[in-house]
Each structure stands twice: as C-alpha cells, then as structure tokens.
Design a binder for these strands. Structure first.
Lengths: 223, 223
DNA sequence: CGACTCATTGACGTAGCTCAAGGTATGTGG
DNA sequence: CCACATACCTTGAGCTACGTCAATGAGTCG
C-alpha cells in the first residue's frame, strides 16, 4: 500500500516517445524561472524531460505552502478543463535547469481523447496527488510540529531510501514551508533529532543517520 | 472561476441511465450506515441515486477530519487502481437513508475503458477534489480559526445561496471536525458573528442572515 | 575577505486547546 | 402532557505549543 510522496517522477515515463511525436513546444528553463507567469489559471501542461520543479501556493498574507516536487517523466499540472480560483495562486518554479515539452490544454485534450493508456495514467496520477493532499489535510493537520517533521523526514527520501545514510537536500526554510510551521519551530525539532543522533544537520542539507529510529517517532499512517 | 465545494452533487448525473444499464448491484443504506466496512482500501464505487453521505478520515489519536459530502448524481470514491495507505482510515457514512448503485473496481474499469465521456468526467471530478484539498491544505492552513470559520460558512451553502436567508444544517461538532479545530473555539467564533447579527445559531443549524457582511470577513481566495 | 544566506538559541506573547460547569432544545416513556 | 434523558450549545479559567522578535554563529560564493 502506497504512502504519500512529495516528489513525482517517472509517472508518465512510458509516454516519452508518444509525447515527442505529438504537437508541442520545446522549452528550457533556467534555475529559478517560473514555468508560467503566476496569477492566472493554468494554460499549459509540461512534460518534464530533465530537471526538478517545485510547486507552491502563495497565501495572501505573504506566506507560502510548498505542495510538491516534479521531476523527469512527469506531467504538471494535472490535466483538466475547469478553471479554479486557487490556480492563480499556484506557482511552479525550476529548482535546477529544466527541459520540458509544453502542451496547450487543447493539445493535451486531443491526446487524452485519443490515447486510452494516457487517460488511465492521468487518473492514477490524480489519485496519487489526492493521496498526498489528504495525508496533509486530514492526517498531518492533527499532528504536533515535531511529529509532522519526523513524518516529513521519513517520507521525503522514501523513494531512494537505504536502511541508513540517506539525505534530504533542502533548506530549513523550505521544509518549514512544506509543513506550514515557522522556521524557528522547525529548527527546534531538528535539534531534538540531532541530539539523539538520528540526523545530522548541515547548510541546506540534512543527513538521516538512523532511519529505523526516526520511524519510531512517526505516526502509524506514515510507516 | 470555481471556488471549492464541500458538497458534491450531480457531477455524474448525465450518466444515470448509462450506469443503470451496466452490471452493478443495487444498494440501500439506512441513516448512519457505513457504505463499506472501514479499515481497508476501497473495493467498490457507488453512484448515489438519492440521499447524502459524509466522508471523513479517522486519525489514530481519536479525532477525525470531515472531508466532503456526497449527494445524488455523484460517484464516490474516485476511481483508481492503486491502493493507498490512507484509504483504510477513510469512512463514508450515510447522513440520510441512501440509495446507490454499487460497482466493483473491475466493473468500473470496464466502463472507464469503453466510455470516453465517462473518463473525461472522472478527471474533472478529480480536479475538483484536488481543488478542495488544496484550498484546505494550502490556504486554510494559514488562516486563524475565526477566518477558517467565516470561509466555511460562506462556502457551505454556496450552491443554494440567495443574497440572504440561507441555512447550514449541521451540528457545531461536525463543523469543528471539518476545520480540525475544537468545538469550544468554534463556538467562540460563532458568538462573534452572532453578536454582529450575521448569523443566528440553533440546535444543529445555523442561519446565515447577512451573507454580504460574512463575505467581508472572508479571505480573498474564498469570495 | 567581505557579503550574503542559512542555522541556532533565547525571551516573550498569544491563539487555541483542555477541563469544567451550566444552559437549552429535542425526544421518549409513563 | 409532564418528567426525564439525551444530545447540543455556551462561557469561563488556566495551560501550552507555537509564533514573533532579536541577536549571534557558521557555511558558501564572488
């Protein structure tokens, strides 16, 4: 049974050749670029060939919530026809140089209509995104900051995880923006884990030294 | 541009005859029944003919988060093939007597594969659910309890809203479980709105007397 | 080597939680 | 129709987790 993931990669890898053969525009973004101008509903979809992007929602009070990360072999944002109010607050920014194929909604609609395997995969991708959001809205919501943090550190490197020695390469500011907690409170949680030799902290990076011990702190829903 | 909705109705109304003509099992639930035994991943999907169901996620600490409501003309849960860990914590309970068509995942898969209009609608439904969850996880997360409450009261009757005189028929306990706040704190918010003649409170019911005044309190994302 | 970003820790204020007590509708059985 | 039980609602008091503000230290880069 699948646990939530924050980094999406490879979901649409099987469609790489198909996508290249369809009408599209090839796009290259520099580290730090936005994939589209913020402030309006989605116009286009991107199939990422290489690089990683980060998606966050800007709040009118100035804060932001980082929702997810999107790497090679995935399509973002999710395909749909309706326009939602909240889309104008969603920003997707390249964390590295990024190479992608851009499709208009209409181009994607045509592929969706003609390719049954593709539309089945779109639905699976949505289900997976709903799973992440449900985990955050329904489960993490009731957890203390410290438990939220342990859960996040456990889930983030899940796809690459060995028994020990995995790495979370992210600033504490960004971790705080994923959990919607203050950077200060996040640091306090990290110091507890550091004191117990479960993690080592660095500038822009956290090493997870003892994943089994970390798992002990996590909620049942997470392990 | 669409704002989030908590009550899903009619999304699949156009498919009523189609669903009836496909292999299924007809089911009737009494008020208070669960649509499926909690504790395992989804096995079946339900097309609701009449009645309303409530979906919530049980937290291991004993609390629960009410996610959404599902009325006539909708399918729940969303169709997909993967099994997610969190599904075992999701409960859907009939709030009224309820009449539905039950489909196995396999039966639904066949309809999904053969009916292009249906699979397009499944995607639109998912997009709409993601919109609700993003609103809660990314926007409401940063709002104070009072602002959360105003936003909720504004959105709940949105589909039936006249300029004034609409009604939220729900106990304060349930409202608190939607927002993941304590019942006590919710009551305090209601007393503020009551003092300003914006609402009137009753047992199991809230009348919204002055919707424009309520809107003044809501966040930009909500109006 | 200076400037900038990122990380850490302490002091303090407050929103929201828990506990507790009492009030008010609604339903039920005699 | 009344007595009683059972929700549901309201308000107060005290505690605490977490946010803000502030000062300082530690990596990294041009």
């Amino acid at each position: 049974m699948r646990t939530p993931r924050y980094l999406f990669t490879g979901d649409f890898a099987a469609f790489a050749d198909y996508f290249r053969a369809q009408p599209h525009q090839e796009r290259r973004f520099r580290k730090g670029d936005c994939l589209w101008a913020p402030g309006q509903p989605f116009q286009s979809l991107y199939y990422i060939l290489s690089g990683v992007a980060q998606t966050y929602t800007a709040h009118e009070n100035g804060r932001r919530k980082i929702t997810s990360f999107h790497g090679a072999g995935t399509v973002f944002p999710g395909y749909h026809q309706q326009d939602f109010r909240i889309e104008s607050a969603i920003v997707t920014v390249a964390l590295t140089d990024l190479h992608a194929l851009e499709f208009t909604k209409e181009q994607f609609r045509r592929m969706f209509a003609e390719n049954a395997r593709l539309n089945a995969q779109v639905v699976e991708w949505y289900a997976s995104y709903v799973n992440l959001l449900l985990y955050e809205a329904a489960h993490q919501e009731y957890n203390s900051t410290f438990l939220k943090l342990c859960n996040l550190l456990y889930l983030l490197p899940a796809q690459q995880a060995g028994p020990d020695g995995c790495v979370v390469a992210m600033t504490q500011d960004d971790l705080a923006d994923i959990l919607c907690v203050s950077r200060v409170q996040l640091t306090r949680g990290l110091s507890v884990l550091r004191a117990e030799q479960i993690i080592r902290t660095h500038r822009g990076r956290i090493d997870i030294l003892d994943r089994p011990a970390l798992a002990q702190y996590c909620s049942l829903e997470t392990r």
